[in-house]
Design a protein around this nucleic acid. Structure first.
Lengths: 214, 214
DNA sequence: TGTACATCAGTGAACGCGCGTTCACTGATGTAC
DNA sequence: TGTACATCAGTGAACGCGCGTTCACTGATGTAC
């Protein structure tokens, strides 16, 4: 695994090319959304003609899969970096928001409306689990609420997906982090707050603090 | 407005035809998502050939706009029906969830990832406001929490979009209803809970009760 | 009740477009002796 | 250092497809006298 760095000049060039193709793909997604992603358009922007892309990706699906993988990776890395620099749960929430605002379509590619036919490969869910685990760990450091909700007791018997050295209430809080953050954020990104003149950042902040004080 | 019922036989037929076209469009959206909506495919299913649809809709955009309008209308009607039959805030939440689960793609058409080029016409935001107003009214009936959050005080000065005979805290609670319900619901609809074996309905229920007891 | 005309639903051919993908091929870059 | 061969990046033409949309036209249905 340590030789992930390109070995021969050809491989190095190949890696650079793949990276540039992906960069153009992201650019295209950022402006027109993931559904408008076109191999030919990317090729034109990269400066070569259509079929050349097949030297680097088996097809459109593989490219999209790779982009989704990278997006999950990028999010996980962002949260990890926030945590490693001492951020608590709310710090991680703000890091997540910044990450989403930096490239809304990247966020939506992962958490937005799924493409009906497409099904994500297994390793993306693995990276997604990684993110979830970081959230659970972050909430583990917080004082525990004594009251157990109905969902908490339900979770006690349906928690195989989560690490088991953690109380169900903590899992619940991590889940709520996810759903509430996603709720405000995705409505903001989708433009559903335009017309209401309040500042979405403040609504977000209140929602984050609700996750801590509740 | 009372003569909205079709007058001549021709107009009646025309209305029926428009309705059937829309029905097929919904069917298509339900199975393949809104991005895959194709006029030619609809025409084939209705039993006539492509260009005939232009007798009923000016083009693809107008059809989609109409579908979005109907979706907003349907949601508003559902919530109103729930309220009129005595449902409180949580009853309205469950009605909303049932409405979403009945046709996930319909929910996603309205609250999902926006089509990057497309911009919704003004009257859809009017219907959306109608829904919001009903939520605000529902929360007005509830006992008021005395503490004002930072966002509450921010809202005091940015609330032109809302009725002004209602405290800012109530507006905030209606907004949180929206964002939290959307958070759980959209993640469920997008399939992000598959793999975790808990029951989304129970997570939803807990999230609804958080809106009341907090 | 019958005729003359207008309205309108629906057809079939066609246009232009962009898509993903395949294929045979050219040229340059690397490798082995 | 030079030659022979293999590897691989990239091209251009082509395939088949489905899309939204236009246009001229046919036939049926309605309306007016």
């Amino acid at each position: 695994m340590t030789d992930a760095v390109a070995r021969s000049p050809r491989e190095r060039y190949r890696e650079q090319m793949r990276a540039e193709i992906k960069r153009c793909a992201w650019e295209q997604i950022a402006t027109a959304g993931s559904s408008a992603l076109s191999l030919n358009a990317i090729a034109k922007q990269v400066g070569m003609s259509g079929p050349a892309l097949y030297r680097y990706f088996a097809g459109r699906d593989e490219l999209i899969t790779e982009l989704i993988r990278d997006a999950y990776r990028s999010l996980a890395d962002t949260l990890r970096a926030a945590r490693d620099s001492g951020a608590d749960v709310s710090g991680m929430a703000y890091a997540l928001r910044e990450w989403a605002l930096a490239d809304p379509q990247r966020y939506l590619l992962v958490y937005g409306t799924p493409v009906p036919g497409y099904h994500a490969p297994d390793d993306t869910t693995a990276i997604s689990n990684e993110t979830m685990t970081m959230l659970i760990e972050a909430f583990s450091a917080l004082p525990l609420d004594e009251r157990a909700t109905p969902f908490d007791t339900h979770l006690e018997r349906h928690r195989r997906w989560a690490p088991d050295n953690v109380p169900a209430t903590t899992l619940h809080r991590a889940l709520s982090f996810w759903t509430r953050i996603h709720g405000v954020l995705s409505l903001e990104l989708a433009g559903h707050f335009t017309g209401m003149e309040f500042d979405p950042a403040l609504l977000f902040a209140d929602e984050v603090s609700s996750l801590l004080t509740e």
